[in-house]
Write a protein that binds this DNA or RNA. Structure first.
Ligand code: SF4
Ligand code: SF4
Lengths: 138, 138
DNA sequence: ATAAAATACCACCTTTTTGTAGCATATAAA
DNA sequence: TTTATATGCTACAAAAAGGTGGTATTTTAT
């Protein structure tokens, strides 16, 4: 399963916003571009603004814009924040009660797998995505 | 989210069986050891036998035993098989329609993250787990 | 002022995943 | 042969995730 839909949507939205020239996006526009269900997307955007990634502006000409510099937001951070802290704190086996001193036989492997994945994801910021996009359109 | 419960359970069961001295395990015994819900575990074990990891023996003194050598089963294979092929084929963004020739800006990063994770997991077989356990008890 | 265009909130519905129950079947010990 | 201990199958129940609808509120263009 890897990630749930909501997390995928979050990455799609923030990624799209990052590489676009615009700086404010309405839910309706993003729905049209990304094919994410209207109402679900609106709720998600509200959530993302509460999580501090974007700012919302109400009223006509309103919408959502980034709340922070793109270079400060990396893909691992988006995933961790949206999924809650489960990703980091809990284990592949769901054994929340296992002790640091006496890890199970899978611990070593799982820790390496998780660490390498998160390393790769945390090395890419939204700003990097934007640069990639620019490089491509040359 | 990373993995769903069913996959976690699968890893827990097969991992437990691999490092144990016994060679046949009843569902009831595994339920007691691993605290996985009785009936759910029984169904899962039946599924795992259909997937070719274990063999079932009915009747008194029956239970489940490995169907293949432990060295042939690695952790990535368990995950991939139990989760279906989604893991490999589908994308973090759920964009099944994206083309190889024109990948999105996240593709590079996501591919690296996924690849490194699977590399780590496929480097460990159930036999390796058994060796680790032996090493520890020395 | 009024209407249009936008987000916010709250409650509900649908689908998927997880978990439960009953009964049938198979095997071995007593 | 009977009984205890196993798995197998099918259907259902509960919980979680995903998705929808109505209405209120805010802001700007007209
Ligand atoms: S010791 Fe095992 S159960 Fe505990 S966190 Fe590590 S992998 Fe998970
Ligand atoms: S290009 Fe790669 S990362 Fe992007 S949607 Fe397609 S498979 Fe996913």
């Amino acid at each position: 399963m890897i990630l749930n839909k909501t997390t995928e949507y979050s990455l799609a939205v923030l990624g799209y916003m990052a590489v676009s020239q615009d700086d404010i996006f309405s839910a309706e526009f993003l729905h049209h571009e990304l094919k994410i269900p209207r109402r679900y997307l609106r709720k998600l955007l509200t959530d993302l603004s509460k999580l501090g990634f974007i700012l919302s502006t109400k009223g006509r000409n309103g919408g959502f814009a980034f709340a922070r510099p793109l270079g400060e937001i990396n893909l691992a951070a988006i995933i961790k924040t949206v999924e809650g802290s489960e990703l980091m704190e809990s284990c592949i086996l769901g054994h929340q009660s296992c002790k640091e001193e006496q890890p199970c036989v899978m611990h070593e492997t799982w820790l390496e797998a998780k660490t390498k994945m998160l390393e790769a994801l945390s090395n890419t910021t939204l700003h990097d995505l934007r640069e990639r996009k620019k490089a491509k359109s040359d």
